[in-house]
Design a protein around this nucleic acid. Structure first.
Lengths: 213, 213
DNA sequence: ATAAAATTTAACCAAATGGTTAAATCATAT
DNA sequence: ATATGATTTAACCATTTGGTTAAATTTTAT
């Protein structure tokens, strides 16, 4: 059920609290979350919260760091895989859309809280032992372009395109549904379909482009 | 300076307040914003806030609706323009990236607050006299595909791709900078460059695609 | 000039909230 | 069994926060 086993030393109560905190914080954000609400959700007393995690800040920092690591590492794993570019893009998009839809709370949470408190990221990065190698992917793009297998493109821009198309539809769901006037159900179906077509959309752009005037 | 002249009946003090509220709310969100802080920012007394706008909720609703209308209408205007698809996509992407970068606060604000309170959107849509015609664009895609000028593609998915690639890099800036390890300055330059290349990236995918096995 | 209305202010208030404390309960080792 | 340490609880506390009130000041109409 919980995916918080990372906190190895945590006992049952601690896990209950972390689970509840993750839920409440990611829905309401730091400011909107209430310690009492977290306590209720975890079915323990509010004082127990402070007994285990001292303060709201400390608890939040734990959750935030955990969540950040989670996207960071997932993306890292995928991007470092050693396979042909075409397969990698297919794998990347399918895998990442899958990952995000299973963890819908993650992206808006990280995005909002990081934007609200940019300094936090320095701390999180420092204290996380994550080492992210985007060079692998970047070099692969450059090589394929030089070999003439794909068109010339700034690898960072390509990376941004891929991530944008996979991720954005999730946090933007309420906004897009509102603007496009489509139902939740149809939106969900579209996201399923999306998993299959994004890779092709990208590859079509990369391979054999028409030269424009 | 201010873009809030929409509130036609507003006097000087009201505009000062609205400006301050927009700033504070969009930075800190509803929960994070303090009435006192808004009052300070507007250089008036806290009680004056309530004198003019009754409650935090009422003030927030005004700001939120204004912001929502702003993206909604800007996108609407662009999408309804009557021009060839290729030009339209070029115009759309350049214009929208420009618009977003001039109003960086807008997207994260709307996204977060809409996600936190999805019911709000019903109210906002109802009370806004916006009428958004995405059909225009949708039909254009269908027609071009049928005519064989572009490949077959679900117009909604294409729309989503375009918006995602234009918009996402802005709210995700802190996250992407962190993950990719690039500086704010380089990021800014990339976003400038982006304005020029996105349309081509999309058109390359749409026109003359390689048939894949 | 002055009465009336609109605006602004300082001083308050009640509720909510993060956090503490000290006593009670439970688990564990001897 | 019981002493020791860990866990849980109810009752509090200080501060913050949205909101109010009534008086003071400024603006406007006559």
């Amino acid at each position: 059920m919980t995916d918080l086993q990372i906190f190895e030393t945590a006992g049952e109560t601690e896990l209950k609290i972390l689970d509840a905190a993750k839920k409440i914080f990611s829905i309401k954000g730091y400011d909107g979350a209430r310690m009492q609400e977290i306590a209720n959700e975890a079915k323990i007393n509010k004082a127990a919260l402070h007994y285990y995690f001292r303060s709201k800040d400390k608890l939040f920092e734990l959750i935030f760091k955990f969540c950040f690591k989670k996207i960071y590492n997932n993306l890292g794993e995928i991007i470092e895989k050693d396979m042909p570019l075409k397969d990698k893009i297919k794998f990347m998009t399918e895998n990442y859309i899958d990952f995000i839809s299973k963890n819908q709370y993650l992206i808006p949470f990280i995005m909002t809280e990081l934007a609200k408190n940019p300094d936090r990221f320095v701390k999180v990065i420092k204290e996380s032992d994550v080492k992210f190698k985007s060079e692998n992917f970047i070099n692969q793009i450059k090589k394929e372009a030089k070999a003439g297998n794909i068109k010339e493109i700034d690898p960072f821009q390509l990376f941004m395109n891929i991530i944008s198309m996979c991720v954005f539809p999730f946090p933007a769901k309420p906004m897009l549904c509102a603007i496009l006037g489509i139902s939740e159900l149809k939106y969900k179906k579209m996201m399923e379909e999306r998993k299959k077509i994004i890779a092709d959309f990208i590859m079509d752009s990369l391979i054999n482009p028409v030269h424009r005037e």
